[in-house]
Simulated scan of single mutants.
Amino acid sequence: MELEEGDRSQLNTLSPISVRYHRALIFYRYYLDKSVPLIKERWAALALLLFLFELRVVLTHKWYLSCYTHGIFLLNQFLSFLTPKFDLSLQQDEENKELEAGERSDEFRPFIRRLPEFKFWNYSTRATLIALISTLFNFTDIPVFWPILFVYFIIIFILTMNRQIKHMLKYRYIPLDIGKKKYGSK
């Protein structure tokens, strides 16, 4: 975790607060890079953070609006994770034009996510930490009638997942690699 020469000269021209911020950022990026191959451990840590946040909300009977906004953010991230990077409806229109012209492209097109797994985990972890920290302050506890928010979240979840599943069926792609064959040495 040594600083390179260019980083050191750049840090010398900054204020002490900026230097500490940049060192903290380098420290954060170093351990973030170290966590890339640790997929199960990363997701277990996120599950633990989510459990702590939900436990805090349930035990205190507060911060329902924070919980709702956090849930909406995670749903949005999950949908980006399930969605292909390139619009399949435009690709299908191009293939139809090729068929009309007499050309057919049987080119293999791998599934590329709009939001890669690591970024999905990273953004979700950051959001969960922010939501957990927000439960430490009373001014972030805005009183709401939580059953309405819960029902509204369930409705949004069902409608968006229904739309996503129809899109997956229409364009025949599977965004998750659960159950796919693994090739290689045993």
Rank of each mutant, 00 (worst) to 15 (best):
L52Y: 10
R29N: 12
E117Q: 08
P147M: 11
E95R: 15
N96Q: 15
Q91P: 00
L46E: 04
I72Y: 00
E2H: 11
D141T: 06
E94T: 07
T160P: 00
L136Y: 11
L82S: 02
G102P: 02
L159C: 06
H61D: 11
A44D: 03
P147Y: 12
T83Q: 03
S9N: 14
D141V: 04
F81I: 02
T135R: 00
R29H: 10
K119G: 03
G184N: 01
A45T: 12
S18K: 14
D87S: 09
N76A: 06
L46Y: 04
S134R: 08
R109A: 09
W146M: 11
Y28H: 05
E95T: 07
R20A: 10
L74N: 04
T83V: 03
D106I: 00
G102M: 03
P175S: 01
L176M: 09
R172V: 08
E41M: 13
I158E: 11
C67I: 02
R104T: 00
L52H: 08
K182T: 12
L11Q: 05
P143M: 05
D33A: 15
R163F: 06
S124F: 03
Y152D: 13
V19W: 01
R8W: 13
F118C: 01
Q92K: 14
V151L: 08
S15T: 15
L136E: 11
M1S: 15
P175R: 01
L50M: 08
S35N: 11
I174M: 12
K170A: 07
E103M: 12
M1L: 15
D93A: 13
F137I: 13
G71R: 08
I133M: 10
D106T: 03
I156C: 07
K97N: 15
A45G: 13
Q91I: 07
V57D: 01
I142T: 12
I174G: 08
K186Q: 13
A24V: 05
T135P: 05
Y21F: 13
D141Y: 05
L32G: 14
L46D: 03
S124C: 06
S89D: 07
S66N: 14
E107C: 06
Y21E: 06
R29Q: 12
H22P: 00
L159W: 04
K181D: 10
Q10I: 08
A47G: 15
Y30C: 07
I72D: 02
H22G: 00
Y28C: 02
F86Y: 10
D7C: 09
R42G: 02
A47Y: 06
S18E: 15
V57I: 12
I39Q: 04
R114P: 02
L99V: 04
D177S: 15
S18F: 12
T13V: 13
P116W: 06
T13K: 15
I148W: 09
L82Q: 03
D7E: 15
L49K: 03
G71S: 14
E5V: 08
R56F: 05
S89E: 09
D87Y: 04
S35M: 14
L132A: 03
N96A: 15
I26R: 10
R114F: 07
